[in-house]
Design a protein around this nucleic acid. Structure first.
Length: 135
DNA sequence: GCCAACGTTGGC
DNA sequence: GCCAACGTTGGC
């Protein structure tokens, strides 16, 4: 069974659209310790929601993790890991942050609990419910 | 544009 | 090793 994750990105820097265009990218730039810990727990074949921060605040698509975590080749510090991700599917209907926040089911969701975390796990039941909401 | 929450830095 | 000051993130 694959693990489920959520990856945040600022769309003016790198959007889900960019990922669909690139097909595949290196998910780098993560420096927060907790976020790095989660990154290190990823494995090839896991799935991740892509969330747009900033003006959009919408869950936009699903990506597949296509590598195990490895040290960022552009960094000297081996703790700074990255993974390769590939666009899988844009969500038919994006899910706005406010809809997630107003849903009591998601009161434990880390996206709500820790607003500044950029990489986080998603439980299977959260994953399923979000997919349902997305159509 | 503001500010709360959190992380990081640096003086002690 | 503590903690005040500062910087950054991201929602509002």
């Amino acid at each position: 069974m694959p693990g489920y994750w959520l990856l945040k990105t600022e769309p003016s820097n790198y959007s889900y659209h960019d990922l669909t265009k690139d097909k595949k990218t290196i998910w780098d730039g993560v420096s927060n310790n907790l976020a790095l810990k989660y990154l290190r727990n990823m494995k090839k074949g896991d799935l991740a929601f892509i969330y747009h921060t900033g003006k959009e605040r919408i869950l936009v698509g699903v990506a597949e993790v296509v590598s195990d975590p490895y040290p960022d080749p552009k960094q000297k510090d081996p703790k700074l890991v990255v993974v390769d991700v590939k666009a899988k599917q844009a969500l038919p209907r994006g899910i706005a942050l406010k809809d997630i926040k107003s849903d009591a089911t998601f009161s434990d969701f880390l996206l709500v609990r820790l607003p500044r975390l950029s990489v986080m796990p998603v439980t299977p039941s959260q994953w399923k419910r979000l997919l349902n909401l997305a159509g």
